[in-house]
Simulated assay, not measured.
Amino acid sequence: MTCRVSGSTSSLTTRRSSGNYGLRTLAPRIIDLLLASNESSHVALDTKNGATIVHVLTGFASSFDRNMSAATRQKLYAVGYTTTATALAALPTVASA
C-alpha cells in the first residue's frame, strides 16, 4: 500500500488494488494508531514505575463505532469487569498496620 498527499486538494488517499480511500476512511485508523502508540508509552512508563496493568481484550469493538449495539457495549463491560476482577483477585494482599 502506498500513501500520498495531494497538494492541490489537501486530501490524504491510499492506493490499493481495490481503489482509493479518502480521509474519512483513513482518519479513524490513523487516530487508532496514534492512540495505541501513546497508550503503549504510558503503559511502559507506568509498568516501570510499579503499576499493575490489566489488559482487557476489546478487539471485537471499534472505538469509533457511533452506532455500537447494546449487546457489544454490554460485552465490553462484562469482559472489562471480569478481567479486572480476576486481576484484582490475583494481587497479593497487604496487611494493614
Results as ranks from 00 to 15, higher is better:
Asn20Val: 05
Leu23Glu: 04
Val43Arg: 08
Ser8Thr: 10
Asn67Thr: 11
Ala51Lys: 10
Thr25Glu: 07
Phe60Asn: 03
Asn67Phe: 12
Leu57Phe: 15
Thr25Asp: 09
Phe64Tyr: 11
Arg15Glu: 15
Ser37Trp: 11
Leu23Asp: 07
Thr13Trp: 03
Ala44Phe: 02
Ser17Leu: 09
Cys3Phe: 15
Lys48Arg: 06
Ser41Pro: 02
Ala61Thr: 07
Leu26Lys: 04
Tyr21Val: 08
Ile53Cys: 03
Thr58Gly: 08
Thr14Met: 09
Leu34Pro: 05
Arg29Thr: 15
Arg15His: 13
Tyr21Ser: 14
Glu39Leu: 03
Arg29Val: 14
Ile53Trp: 03
Ser62Glu: 15
Asp46Lys: 08
Gly22Pro: 01
Ser10Phe: 04
Ser40Gln: 15
Asn20Tyr: 13
Leu12Val: 12
Thr52Val: 14
Leu33Val: 14
Asn20Thr: 07
Thr13Arg: 08
Gly50Met: 04
Ile53Glu: 01
Ala27Gln: 14
Thr14Gly: 00
Gly50Ile: 08
Ile31His: 01
Ser62Arg: 10
Asn49Phe: 07
Leu45Phe: 05
Ala36Ser: 14
Gly50Val: 09
Thr9Trp: 04
Thr47Ile: 02
Ser41Gly: 01
Ile53Tyr: 00
Leu35Met: 07
Thr14Cys: 09
Ser8Pro: 10
His42Asn: 05
Ala44His: 11
Val5Gln: 04
His42Lys: 14
Ser41Thr: 07
Cys3Ile: 13
Leu57Gly: 12
Asn38Thr: 14
Thr58Met: 06
Val5Phe: 13
Thr52Asn: 02
Thr47Cys: 01
Val56Met: 00
Thr13Asp: 01
Ser6Thr: 14
Phe60Pro: 04
Leu12His: 06
Cys3Glu: 09
Gly7Lys: 04
Asp32Cys: 04
Val5Thr: 05
Arg15Asp: 12
Ala27Trp: 13
Tyr21Met: 06
Phe60Tyr: 14
Ala51Thr: 11
Gly50Asn: 03
Ala36Pro: 00
Ser11Val: 15
Thr13Tyr: 08
His55Asn: 09
Gly22Phe: 06
Cys3Leu: 13
Val56Trp: 00
Asn38Phe: 05
Leu35Ala: 10
Glu39Gln: 10
Gly59Cys: 01
Ala61Gln: 02
Ile53Ser: 01
Ile53Thr: 10
Phe60Trp: 09
Gly22His: 11
His42Ser: 15
Arg29Tyr: 14
Val56Glu: 02
Lys48Met: 02
Ala44Pro: 06
Ser62Leu: 10
Arg24Gly: 11
Gly59Pro: 07
Thr9Gly: 00
Val5Ala: 08
Leu34Gly: 04
Asn38Gly: 11
Gly22Ser: 05
Leu12Thr: 07
Ile31Gln: 09
Thr47Arg: 12
Thr14Phe: 08
Asn20Ser: 13
Asn67Val: 03
Val54Pro: 02
Ser6Asp: 15
Asn67Leu: 08
Asn67Met: 01
